[in-house]
């Protein structure tokens, strides 16, 4: 009898796991399923809310085509010549869409609080960190989906055109968008976790978001700014996010153009000058009016690191806020 048992254990040995391991595995799995179900519910709510879905897709188009086209024309009037402002603005609008949708998605926490469902979640044995993560993933998913719709527009001739290169860029933009969405949703969840007033939410969000957005370089290049503003853009985490998207989207695109003097040069010559940094600088010295729009302020790796680090800090705050108890 005893021999048998020992033999059995020896036979099963490799498959047996210690109780501790088992508990660890299941509690980890439980946390994951908690994240999943919170995410799934938020996603279902978004998907079933048709007006919200449609409205979310229309807003970026308004910015891109109405504001973008108007400004592009305005620059010509002001003497900047032909610009590809809509193209320049595209990654900015992408960033804006992700930013606003991500941060505003956390209003779902306020709704849950208002309609009592938050209590159902908080009284359940699902870890609070799973709730926070589920909310972050839920908001990020809707933001990325909206960004994806915008990515389709990249193929329009007035933006990047229908090329293989555009497809390659679009594919590269997806993971960057996901990173930005996760970071920004964490901001929203960190704020929404404890907030109780519906009135305060938009006020607070606009108070933070509008400056963040305007200082991000989404609408204008971050160059030639007064030093105080330049400083603010450097400490704005979103400016790294926009820079990251712009670095990929505008790689190899010539946005400018042409100052009045340079426009008199034959296009092949101009292109050659602009492709060589030294010549371009020289040309700028000779004709100081010639604008060169920077498509990238920081190296890409720095952008990614800053956005990721910022996101992690915000996520930690969001989880901490959820863990606090009245």
């Amino acid at each position: 009898m005893e021999e048998n048992t020992v033999k059995e254990i020896e036979e099963q040995g490799p498959e047996l796991e210690s109780a501790e391991e088992y508990l660890h595995r299941t509690s980890f799995q439980r946390s994951l399923t908690g994240v999943y179900i919170v995410w799934l519910r938020d996603f279902k709510r978004f998907w079933r809310d048709t007006p919200r879905r449609l409205g979310a897709f229309v807003q970026p188009l308004v910015y891109l085509f109405l504001l973008g086209t108007g400004l592009q024309a305005a620059f010509k009037v002001f003497g900047a010549g032909e610009t590809k402002y809509v193209t320049f603005m595209f990654p900015g609008i992408l960033g804006m869409t992700v930013l606003f949708t991500s941060v505003f998605s956390s209003i779902s926490i306020l709704w849950d609080r208002q309609f009592g469902f938050l209590k159902e979640i908080l009284v359940s044995p699902v870890p609070r960190s799973s709730v926070a993560l589920g909310k972050v993933f839920g908001g990020a998913t809707t933001a990325v989906l909206q960004g994806m719709v915008l990515l389709v527009l990249m193929f329009l001739p007035s933006i990047f055109g229908f090329h293989w290169e555009t497809l390659w860029k679009a594919l590269l933009l997806i993971p960057l968008m996901i990173l930005l969405a996760l970071a920004m949703t964490s901001v929203g969840v960190a704020i929404g976790a404890r907030l109780k007033s519906f009135e305060a939410f938009p006020v607070l969000m606009n108070f933070f978001l509008m400056p963040l957005f305007f200082l991000s370089g989404a609408m204008f290049p971050l160059q030639g700014l007064p030093s105080w503003m330049d400083f603010l853009t450097k400490i704005n985490p979103l400016s790294y996010g926009v820079d990251m998207l712009r670095a990929v989207a505008l790689k190899g695109v010539t946005l400018t153009t042409t100052s009045n003097v340079a426009s008199k040069l034959p296009p092949e010559v101009l292109a050659k000058i602009q492709s060589d940094p030294q010549l371009a600088t020289a040309l700028q010295k000779v004709f100081p009016k010639m604008p060169t729009v920077q498509t990238q302020v920081h190296p890409l790796w720095l952008d990614v690191v800053v956005v990721a680090a910022f996101g992690l800090v915000m996520l930690a705050i969001a989880i901490w806020q959820f863990n606090r108890q009245e």
Binding site: K44, R45, R48, D49, F115, G116, F117, K119, E120, V123
Partner: peptide, 12 residues
């Protein structure tokens, strides 16, 4: 737990 105020998700 059955709370005093409703705590269901109405859209589900």
């Amino acid at each position: 737990m059955v709370f005093q105020d409703p705590s269901l998700d109405d859209t589900l």
